[in-house]
């Protein structure tokens, strides 16, 4: 019997995932993109497979994207949403694990505020675990869809110069982008308010530059992170206006550079804060491509992880 297409059993993060696995997930993602352009956007691949979406933290687009990916693969979908505040985190996760185990789920897609929670889950359940965001740790499918959008635009990832701008310290999007893109041979500069860039980040092979204009001059593409307004109360950022003036991506700022810089944003967008409306809606932004690629690459992840699991257990 031939080797599985990918070597990972779960998708807990992009840290440590091989270049080959990432490329396979992206390539199959492009195949699913084609399915999404068909009149009937559904294939029977995962018929009879049960997937549960466990969201302990609020999410609209990631949850919908996963649900669409599952439904377009013909899987049976169960949704479970709970606000983090209603659960004692430790006890809640333990209960969850036991429940999933008892329900014989084939795959679990989980978002949880505690970093490492999906890894813990994967150790105790006999199901494929997919991380949909674990606190400030990783959001691997976001990293994959960002890479897919970059590959679509540039045709390759190796050697690309990518700026990541915003609150690096609290961003799982940044971390997954860094792990994935460095593995694929891209160069990364992170940029943002100094106190929101953890000093250890340079150990991951990225460089730090707090001057957004210098980063724009250097970069082929920038990933603009959402400024999490819910954190404003904690005094992390003095004011929205100050942030916009120093780090906001505006047409005025972009027009200083003669090249076209591709703009990514994980959404939801704070228009007029980290990015201006005319930039977000402009030609160099691939934000809506990212949304479409998100569904496709999540189909790819489910397809590969469930495919190798089933062939192992039931063949």
């Amino acid at each position: 019997m031939s080797e599985p297409a990918i070597s990972i059993k779960h998708l807990l993060g992009l840290e440590g995932v091989s270049r080959q696995d990432i490329q396979t997930l992206l390539d199959t993602g492009f195949s699913f993109r084609e399915v999404l352009d068909r009149p009937i956007k559904k294939v029977p691949t995962l018929t009879g497979i049960n997937v549960v979406n466990l969201f302990f933290e609020s999410s609209t687009r990631t949850r919908i994207s996963f649900e669409l990916a599952e439904k377009r693969l013909s899987a049976d979908v169960t949704n479970f949403a709970a606000s983090a505040s209603s659960l004692n985190k430790g006890e809640g996760l333990k209960d969850t694990i036991q429940n999933i185990h008892a329900m014989r789920m084939d795959a679990v897609v989980m978002r949880h505020p505690a970093p490492g929670s999906t890894r813990q889950l994967s150790q105790f359940v006999d199901a494929v675990v997919i991380n949909a965001g674990d606190g400030t740790h990783e959001h691997p499918t976001q990293g994959l869809l960002d890479m897919m959008s970059l590959q679509e635009r540039f045709g390759h990832l190796k050697g690309l110069k990518i700026g990541i701008i915003g609150d690096i310290a609290h961003s799982r999007v940044a971390l997954s982008n860094i792990f994935g893109l460095i593995t694929m041979g891209a160069e990364i500069k992170v940029c943002g308010p100094g106190h929101l860039i953890p000093p250890y980040i340079s150990d991951l092979g990225v460089s730090i530059n707090c001057d957004v204009d210098e980063v724009l001059e250097w970069a082929d593409a920038v990933n603009v992170l959402r400024i999490q307004r819910e954190r404003m109360g904690e005094g992390i950022i003095p004011s929205v206006r100050e942030y916009r003036n120093r780090f906001g991506i505006t047409n005025e700022r972009l027009s200083k550079h003669r090249k076209e810089i591709v703009i990514l944003h994980p959404g939801p967008i704070n228009r007029g804060v980290e990015i201006d409306s005319d930039v977000a809606d402009g030609d160099q932004a691939v934000i809506l491509d990212q949304v479409l690629n998100g569904v496709a690459v999540r189909m790819s992840v489910l397809f590969h992880l469930l495919g190798s699991r089933l062939s192992e257990g039931e063949a």
Binding site: P4, T28, V35, T45, G48, G307, S311
Partner: peptide
């Protein structure tokens, strides 16, 4: 047409590593 996503042996065989284009 690539038939990988429509195959009925997904449960018993490994999925093809390479999915060709459907155009």
């Amino acid at each position: 047409v690539d038939v990988t996503f429509h195959r009925d042996d997904f449960r018993t065989r490994l999925p093809a590593p390479r999915v060709g284009p459907t155009k």
